[in-house]
Design a protein around this nucleic acid. Sequence first.
DNA 1: TTCGCTGTTCCAGTGGATGGAATGACATTC
DNA 2: GAATGTCATTCCATCCACTGGAACAGCGAA
Lengths: 286, 286
Amino acid sequence: MSKPSLATTPGPTAPPGTTPVTSQTIATVERAADVLVLFARSQEASLGVTEIAQALSLSKAAVHRILASLRTRMLVEVDEDSRRYRLGPTAFALGVAYQSRIDVRQSAAGELAALSHETQETATLSVLSGDSRMYVDQVTPHREIVMSVPLGLMFPLHAGASSKAMLAFLPENELEQALAAPLLALTGSTFTDVGDLRAELARVREQGYATSQGERQAGAASVAAPVFDHEGRPIAAISICGPAERFGQHLQEAVTILPAATARVSSRLGHSSTTKTLTQDLVGRR
Amino acid sequence: MSKPSLATTPGPTAPPGTTPVTSQTIATVERAADVLVLFARSQEASLGVTEIAQALSLSKAAVHRILASLRTRMLVEVDEDSRRYRLGPTAFALGVAYQSRIDVRQSAAGELAALSHETQETATLSVLSGDSRMYVDQVTPHREIVMSVPLGLMFPLHAGASSKAMLAFLPENELEQALAAPLLALTGSTFTDVGDLRAELARVREQGYATSQGERQAGAASVAAPVFDHEGRPIAAISICGPAERFGQHLQEAVTILPAATARVSSRLGHSSTTKTLTQDLVGRR
DNA sequence: TTCGCTGTTCCAGTGGATGGAATGACATTC
DNA sequence: GAATGTCATTCCATCCACTGGAACAGCGAA
């Protein structure tokens, strides 16, 4: 037993992401975090104590104490009448704080607006986090039928143009880790065979961008290119997306302006041409 | 000793708001919440363990364990190189979830856009939470010089038009509680005398709206009116605000359209004319 | 009323969080 | 390149505070 026992209770909620997190953790804090995550994920506007306790396999007493604690910091609020709980203003403050800190969002905001304007389709920004990605911004064009993506939700890295754009440029070990998990089908077009996906990722590396026809969302088409940080790691992706019936044939046109836009964002984040060679090495790999 | 000892350690971070929260709480969870709140409040993009430990008077070991725990749920992230921590994507997800739940935001969005368009000034939405308020939305006009308010930050209830609009219609006991605390001056124009403020609140109740000339923010002028929920409680306020030198003289013009807008939002939230009589009772009070 | 369902509080027992000190990992300085 | 300072991280025995089952309370429905 050389490795220290990782105290973490292997609860129902998914463990680590890319980083193993070997450090000692506090079970109570993780439980409290699970409660918050449950509020974020749940479709319900408010949750009851019993409901939460069942969903997380905790005792009602424990959930009640956690909610009382979160309440003192206004992370959750209680409806005095129905005795049901909902997220509090501090949750909003955390979201605003996160947005203002991630500089990729500021760096990309202008490009999103320009891309959306030029293509008259929706431009989105996703960030990589662990083994998932999340939309953090979008700009929709002024027209009747537009595509709108859900902000703040996690999506797997094997489905959709933005996902593949980042996945393709991940370091070998992280890529393998991502491909190790079963490839769940979100739609009928999602890659579910690892071999097919590997071939697709090789294409993405050669081209520098990825396309998708309804892989994540049926009826949607998109092009996406990765954004690199100062170390040459893919940390975000910008996509242009729209309804498949009208945008499906115009993906190639969007490709002419997209990689230039992501390159500008990358360079603003300190991604130099020297680090770029690092990504060039990946092109040949299978 | 009829009252059970409330276990909560009376830490440096502010305790309860309006609701006493007598329930038993978990000190560890409150500490973890304090860490998150610190991230939200801090201007720094990232924080170190020692920094956090000092700010919250906790041991480095405790802070480290808390961060490790929050990390497993991606509420915070680590920069592997600098070993400094920052908010993680789950923080963003919580913010988005909060936004999508508070229906006052949806109900008011259209009104904000219309008000901003008509006045060519900034329209804002604040929500009441405990003994503070927070901006949750704003619409700025398309012109060179515009006023922009900070979303997600807490402000006291005695300064600014939005604050006074809500404070004036609070139930007696909550109003007294709010007035019990010392009235800190945010600018030279902030009400710091309780008597003056009471007289001002009586005016607000008669008029149905509040005005401010630089009470919260020097150089800003604003008009605000309250939004009521189905129980007749003031839960939010809509304001129109702009730079004092050009908007200061036009407050009265904005008043003609603002109360109608807030009334529409209130009624959308179930505020009927019968409950309105409840607020009428307040008008006479001193 | 009685039932069944909530959320909340109580309690004693013990498992786990605690903090001081030791260690490791970098930078920065001499 | 050794030495110093400053971080983050880990270790460990102590003891406190979190735990969960059960009892209680409050509500609406039958």
